[in-house]
């Protein structure tokens, strides 16, 4: 957690919701709840298939109005960790309607090489409220052992900044 906190390739958001942990868990895992908050205003979520168990597939379709008719975005991935009311980890790849739709068994390897990301949700009950830490990190699709990658990139970027400043 701490090593991704400030790295450039992850979004880390900590929030406390005025709701019990059971309800926040449902927000993430049940389609009728997810549909209420996942898409921006004006968007709808016509499809949200969430097989919430390790190895289960998550497939969410978001539909947005556009001048050329409705535009679809597909979020496809696989659940990596499922600890009820505590921790949810899944991978995610985004594709446009006309873009490559991933084969669920091989995330990140279908035509067009969409980038894979990982979403990690950690929940903690604080009285009747819920503290949530959400981490959304980029995962290089062709390198399973990406450890140290973010650090290397940070170092490289710092190096470049230093050299530009000369």
């Amino acid at each position: 957690m701490t090593d991704t906190q400030n790295s450039r390739d992850a979004v880390v958001i900590e929030r406390t919701f005025d709701a019990p942990v059971v309800l926040i868990w449902r927000m993430w895992t049940e389609p009728e709840f997810l549909k209420e908050w996942y898409g921006p205003d004006g968007a709808s979520i016509p499809i949200a298939n969430m097989d919430v168990r390790v190895g289960g597939i998550r497939r969410v379709c978001m539909e947005m109005p556009s001048p050329n008719g409705p535009m679809q975005m597909w979020f496809t991935g696989e659940y990596r960790e499922v600890v009820e009311h505590q921790r949810l980890v899944y991978t995610e790849s985004v594709s446009a309607e006309s873009g490559p739709v991933l084969s669920p068994t091989s995330p990140g390897t279908a035509g067009g090489h969409p980038m894979m990301t990982e979403v990690r949700v950690e929940l903690e009950a604080v009285g009747n409220r819920t503290k949530m830490v959400m981490t959304h990190a980029g995962v290089p699709s062709d390198s399973p052992g990406a450890a140290g990658w973010a650090m290397a990139l940070d170092k490289l970027a710092a190096n470049i900044a230093t050299n530009r400043g000369r």
């Binding site: 450039r8 390739d9 992850a10 979004v11 958001i13 929030r15 919701f17 005025d18 709701a19 309800l23 927000m27 709840f33 209420e36 908050w37 996942y38 921006p40 959400m134 959304h136 980029g138 990139l153 490289l156 970027a157 470049i160």
Partner: peptide, 26 residues
């Protein structure tokens, strides 16, 4: 590399807005 470094910057507002809506829905 600049595109890489802004990937998270571009996603952050998306998530912030999602959680604002979750708050509203709650």
């Amino acid at each position: 590399l600049e595109a890489v470094s802004t990937w998270a910057d571009r996603y952050r507002p998306v998530w912030e807005a999602r959680f604002d809506r979750m708050d509203d829905y709650l």
